[in-house]
Design a protein around this nucleic acid. Structure first.
Lengths: 209, 209
DNA sequence: CTCTTATAGTACCGTACGGTACGGTTCTGC
DNA sequence: GCAGAACCGTACCGTACGGTACTATAAGAG
C-alpha cells in the first residue's frame, strides 16, 4: 500500500485555459464528450499540444482534477473565540459550504469521471480526487472540531470518527442521488434546512453538557 | 416530473443466464469490458440475439439492473414484539445488511455504471437504480422505524428524515470511497463497529426517554 | 418429412476515438 | 533579420465498438 505523494504540478496560463475548457466540456457532456479532438477544438489548440503537455488522455484527466482542486482552496477559517452559539454557526456554515461544493457541477462531473474510471486497476484518479477533495475539506472541519474540543464545547474521543458522523448527517445519500442524475437545482433550496438539522443532531450527540 | 412506473419485466432462463454473464463481465472489467461482442462471447450467444432480446446496449444495461434488483429481494422482517434491546438489535442487523449490500461487487459495479451514464440526458439508469435499490432498502427500514414509533420506542416527526439520518450515520462517506476504488476487503472488518456506532448515535437522537 | 422458429457463429459496415505526423504560422532570443 | 522553438490546424492511421445481415444448425409442429 504505497502512499504515493501527490506532486503539485503547475501549468502555464495557456494550459490552464485548456484545462478550463476541458472541464466545461466534461460538465456539459460527461466523459463521452471529453475527446481529445473535442478538447482541442473547444480550446483552439492542437491535439499534438495536448499530448505534449499532458502525455495522454489519462494525464489530461489527472491534470483536470489537480487543476480544479487547486482552484477550490478551502477558506481556512480561524475560530479564535469559540462560544456555544458561535460553534453552531461555524458548523452550519461548514455544512452549507460542503453541500454547495458537493452539488457543484464541476465537482459532480469530476466525481462521475473518477468513478467511471475506478474499475480499471491502474487508475489513480479516485485516489487523487480523494486526497485533493475530501482531505482538504476534512482538514478544515477537523480543525474546527479540534478547536471546539479544546474550548470545552465538544466531547469526542476520535476526531475522524466524529467528523465522519458529521459528514454523514449532513450529506446522507444526497451525494449519491446527485451523481445518479438527480436535479441539483431542485434540491438546493433544501440545503439550509438540511444543514441546520444535521448540525442540531451533531450537537445533540457531541456537545458537552 | 413524470413518475414513470417501472415495468416488472421477466426474462427466460436463457436470458437470465446471459444477464448473469454480463454482470460477471461488468464486475470484472467495468463498463469498458461490457461490449456486445464480449457479452455474446462470454455467454455463448449471438449478438443478434442480444439485440433481439434487449433492443440495444442501453436496454441490456437496464435489464442487468432490473435482473440484479430482482435477485436481491429484501427479507421483509416483521417485528411483532419490539422491545428496547430488540429494536437496537434489529437496527444493527439492518445497518450491517446495508453495508454488506453497498459494498458488494455487483452493487458497486452497477452504481459505477449508472453514474458513468448519468451525464447523458436521456439515461434512466440512475432513476432505475434509485427506485430498485434505495426504495427497496428504505422501505424495509421505514417499516421498522414506523413500528418502533408505534411501539413507543422512537420519537420522530418525519419518517423519511429520520431514515435519512440513520443512513448517513451508517454509511457516511464509505460508499463514495468504495466507488472511487477503495479496497472493500480492507474495510469490511470495520463494518460491525461502524454499525454499532451508527445505531448508538441514532438511538441517542431518536429513542424515546 | 417438411415447414417454421429460434438461435449460434461469423462476417461485415460505418463511425468514432486515441495517438502520430506534417505543413504552415507566430513568437522569441540574438 | 534570422534561426529555432512552440504551436495551430488538419490529415492520417489503426483499432475497437455498436449494430446489421447472412448462413447454418437444431428443435418442435403438423
Amino acid at each position: 500500500m504505497l502512499a504515493g505523494t501527490i506532486i503539485e504540478e503547475e501549468y502555464t496560463p495557456r494550459q490552464n485555459a485548456v484545462l478550463e475548457e476541458a472541464l466545461r466540456l466534461l460538465v456539459k457532456g460527461g466523459e463521452k464528450a471529453l475527446t481529445t479532438a473535442g478538447v482541442a477544438r473547444a480550446a483552439n489548440c492542437s491535439k499534438e499540444s495536448l499530448y505534449k503537455w499532458f502525455g495522454d488522455r489519462d494525464g489530461l484527466l489527472s491534470a483536470m482534477i489537480s487543476f480544479q482542486a487547486s482552484k477550490v482552496r478551502t477558506s481556512d477559517v480561524r475560530p479564535d473565540a469559540l462560544t456555544r452559539d458561535n460553534l453552531r454557526e461555524h458548523l452550519v456554515v461548514f455544512a452549507h459550504d460542503l453541500l454547495e461544493v458537493l452539488s457543484g457541477e464541476v465537482s459532480l462531473a469530476l466525481n462521475r469521471l473518477a468513478i467511471g474510471q475506478a474499475s480499471r486497476e491502474g487508475s489513480k484518479l479516485g485516489q487523487l480526487l480523494q486526497e485533493r477533495g475530501r482531505l482538504q475539506v476534512g482538514r478544515r472541519a477537523g480543525a474546527l472540531l479540534e478547536a471546539a474540543r479544546l474550548a470545552g464545547l465538544l466531547r469526542f474521543d476520535d476526531r475522524d470518527e466524529a467528523y465522519g458522523l458529521l459528514y454523514g448527517l449532513i450529506v446522507t445519500d444526497l451525494h449519491l442521488r446527485l451523481m445518479l442524475g438527480a436535479d441539483a437545482r431542485a434540491l438546493k433550496p433544501e440545503f439550509s434546512a438540511r444543514a441546520e438539522r444535521a448540525v442540531g443532531a451533531f450537537l445533540t450527540l457531541f456537545a458537552k453538557t
